[in-house]
Amino acid sequence: MTVLGGFLGSGKTTWLRHQLHEGVFKGAFVIVNEAAETPVDDALLQGSSNLAVLAGGCACCVGKEDLIALLHKICDDRSKQTEHRLERIVLETSGLADPGPIVEAIRTDPILVHHIIVSETLVMVDALHALSQLRSEPLGRKQIEIADCMMVSKIDDANPDDLARLLATLHVVNPGAQIFGTVKGTEVPLPDFSQAEPEHLAEVLNEVDLPPIFPSKLALDETIDWTSFSVWLSALLHSRGNDIVRVKGVVRTPAGRLLVQTVRKVVQSPEILPEQESREDNTIVVIGRGYREEDLARSLKYFAGAS
């Protein structure tokens, strides 16, 4: 099994999507875990023949039982196969997951321990946001500490000095792990960071006392059109981009089904998805902290009614 981890919006699905497209995990069973109840990433990973989505709970805590049950079923089915047996499982964890307890749960399960070898834990590292996550998010640091291999994403958008500092810091936090650079899932060479000064993190992390990050679902009813939604979201990200860690969802617009994804203040160009009916359209997942969940819907309603 390959465990793919990394913080919210670090590029896990983008990387996995590219690998599936290239045929790297050919024939593998892909499990996608999402902390929110609305799955979005499965829409992007249709290239995989065996795909299961575990939505509504992070697999390292509340969703752990569901994950173990699913793995039991996969192993059961595999035992019945006589030819073309399943050789690999890829688990994409939620951005809120600590891969440690997941690997531990598999290794300590009396059945799974005989069927599944966790061969590698890959962790995506966001070149634009990882340093601030390392400073302020204990979870971001745990994910990096456990990695066998770190893949630094979005390096084409990063400032060269910041990137070198990040790489040097990663090397200090987890010296045993290999580090690769990626851009939209494709591997690219990393710059030399041997001269860069790593960030001193230890004392900063102990002082953190932040409210927990939680996922919320936001339904866009017929009164909310793309224009009001985008005005609202752009204002929200401008004022609270550090608290709104991640926004993702599919919005129906006159231009088609638009996939909206943000990581803190950075918004990806919306991607037009193929036309198909989906119950999850017009439902946005907002993952963040420091606000009341009901205020999201109320303020969006206010913006939509403002004219």
Binding site: S239, R292, E294, L296, R298, S299
Partner: peptide, 18 residues
Amino acid sequence: TAVDPLNPKFTMPPAKAS
């Protein structure tokens, strides 16, 4: 000041907001 959509002036129940 930044316009914060989660400011109470934007999160009042809709009836009062208009």
